[in-house]
């Protein structure tokens, strides 16, 4: 991936797809103020798959809203490929947890996938071609003329993924995307996302509260503390690809890593003395 970087950029910025520096976010003011995020910094490299886990209410959604430019943090900066994020950046797409609410019920599947492209310069035929290709990538090419409410939950989330793919993002943000589908569908979608990362050369930041999922998918897991959220630990996941839902999860390495993440979350940010380090 070729990345153009200003000459003044530091070495770490050169390597970073996404750079988060000293983010603090406070909701409200005075006595009722809620500190959601406290001085959070991390970087995500090109083509890296990073999971973010943390106790519920740890400000994960707040963080994603800040990264996607929908919310301006109280303090700190976010840079995408060295460029400071000010407003909604180009080259970034988001997949929401609530697929049934983020798909537009008056548009067919294909039109839903074409939706973000209507902002771009692509002509109608080009938009349709990209939409078809994206639907094919998630295995829904034959459903293009259906409507969202005619599909199962798992299929609707595939449509939402296809819509993000059609936008050709360099960075894909996923906000607990599989939290409301059944276990079997979830496994299928996890493997789908891993294969799409390779096929489309994307960087993925994946927020989840599922510890197995965070380890299985990621190259690196970021564990957040209870609010105000800060980074507790970064855990690299050196398990080779391709990964397998059954055999990967049986390996000692996987079991060890998921135990580490689970202990960190349970202790809410205090390193647990008896951990299997």
């Amino acid at each position: 991936m070729s990345v153009t970087v200003p000459m003044t950029a530091t070495r770490s910025a050169v390597d970073a797809m996404l750079q988060v520096e000293g983010i603090t976010h406070v909701y409200g003011q005075g006595a009722t103020a809620h500190r959601a995020i406290e001085n959070l910094s991390f970087t995500v490299g090109p083509r890296e798959f990073v999971s973010i886990v943390g106790p519920s209410g740890a400000g994960k959604t707040t963080l994603l809203r800040i990264l996607s430019g929908l919310l301006t943090p109280t303090e700190g900066t976010v840079s995408l490929v060295g460029e400071p994020v000010d407003g909604v950046p180009e080259g970034m797409a988001m997949v929401f947890q609530d697929y049934s609410r983020s798909l537009l019920p008056w548009l067919s599947i294909e039109k839903n996938v074409m939706f973000p492209l209507t902002r771009t310069e692509a002509g109608r035929d080009e938009r349709r071609r990209i939409a078809r290709e994206s639907l094919e990538a998630v295995g829904l090419a034959d459903r293009h003329d259906r409507y969202p409410w005619q599909l199962s939950g798992g299929m609707q989330q595939r449509v939402a993924i296809a819509r993000a793919l059609a936008y050709r993002p360099r960075l894909l943000l996923m906000d607990e995307p599989f939290a409301s589908v059944d276990a079997q569908t979830r496994s299928d979608l996890e493997d789908l996302v891993l294969s799409l990362r390779d096929r489309y050369d994307m960087t993925i930041l994946f927020v989840t509260h599922d510890i197995d999922e965070s380890v299985y998918l990621a190259d690196r897991v970021l564990v957040l503390s209870r609010p105000p959220a800060h980074l507790v630990e970064e855990i690299p996941v050196p398990i080779p690809h391709p990964r397998d839902q059954i055999t990967t999860k049986e390996t000692d390495e996987f079991v060890d890593l998921r135990g580490r993440v689970a202990r960190l979350i349970r202790s809410g940010g205090q390193p647990d003395g008896g951990g299997s380090r």
């Binding site: 430019g69 929908l70 909604v88 970034m92 609410r101 983020s102 939706f115 902002r119």
Partner: peptide, 27 residues
């Protein structure tokens, strides 16, 4: 109109006016 639908459109870079035209009014 669903806040999530509006947020989705904004996250794809649609302006506030475009969100009204493309999401709010059809919805």
């Amino acid at each position: 109109v669903d806040v999530k639908a509006k947020e989705m459109a904004r996250s794809f870079g649609f302006s506030r006016l475009a969100v009204i035209r493309r999401v709010v009014v059809p919805s």
